[in-house]
Design a protein around this nucleic acid. Structure first.
Lengths: 129, 129
DNA sequence: CCTTGACCTTCCCATAATGGGAATCCCCAT
DNA sequence: ATGGGGATTCCCATTATGGGAAGGTCAAGG
């Protein structure tokens, strides 16, 4: 199967499939003409990657998750730790963003938002510690 | 004032100050020897940038906010719109991240997390749509 | 006068993940 | 044989930040 069809079947772009290969997440067989050739098992790998990326796992984590996925003797504890570490990172970033959003929303609530120039948002950006 | 002292006074790194200048956020006077020379007003600008960046405004937004800040005839509505658009972006990203975190936490809760290999996290990554 | 150390300058590279695009090659159908 | 659609590789851009090299500058001290 061509990379184009593999892309359609996996939901990834051909560009990204090549990228993941360059990053060592999979290795595609090559035909005599140099074209990559994908089997069903490869599609499963590509879909796995897509799902992991949809959950924002960094490629480094995806690499480890794939290794565990392929390893029948893995310990589920290892998978769980990767996932929970990632959850913690996601939540930390999300909380940081919401704190910024709250702060800005608060400032915006006190801003007239009309033609007048005075603006607590600019005041705050000017004065903060 | 040297870039080193400007860095100390503004809380930015010298590297970033040069970068912001390259990005057109400010223009520093030069001494005869080529060194950048900063006045008090420049420090205020640099601190403004730092505060805006601390709220995760992208440099493009910082550029616009600075322009409004310098414009005494600005309309506070313009500032407010930039801020609220940014708030919306922050909240959207934060919500997306928390949705992923919730989803993963849920999966992790059903994972034994011991030496056994079976793991709903991997199952889900394998099976998702 | 010369050295040393602490600055400063510019330029290149790297990060993470993705996409755009060029130049070139391949295959199949007309 | 020719054209269209795909494939290949390689380079570049994105965002914000930092590392580091090579070289210029300045002030203090021997």
């Amino acid at each position: 199967m061509n990379i184009g069809e593999a892309a359609r079947r996996s939901g990834l772009s051909a560009k990204m499939i090549r990228h993941y290969e360059a990053e060592g997440l999979l290795t595609a067989r090559r035909l005599a003409n140099g074209y990559r050739d994908y089997a069903e098992a490869d599609i499963a790998v590509l879909r796995f990657i897509r799902h992991a990326r949809a959950l924002a796992f960094p490629l480094e984590d995806v690499r480890r998750l794939l290794a565990l996925w392929r390893d029948r003797h893995r310990a589920s504890a290892d998978v769980r730790r990767i996932a929970l570490d990632h959850v913690a990172a996601l939540e930390a970033k999300a909380e940081a963003m919401q704190a910024m959003a709250r702060s800005l929303r608060h400032l915006a609530a006190h801003c007239h938002g009309d033609a007048r120039p005075d603006c607590p948002i600019l005041d705050e950006l000017e004065k903060l510690p």
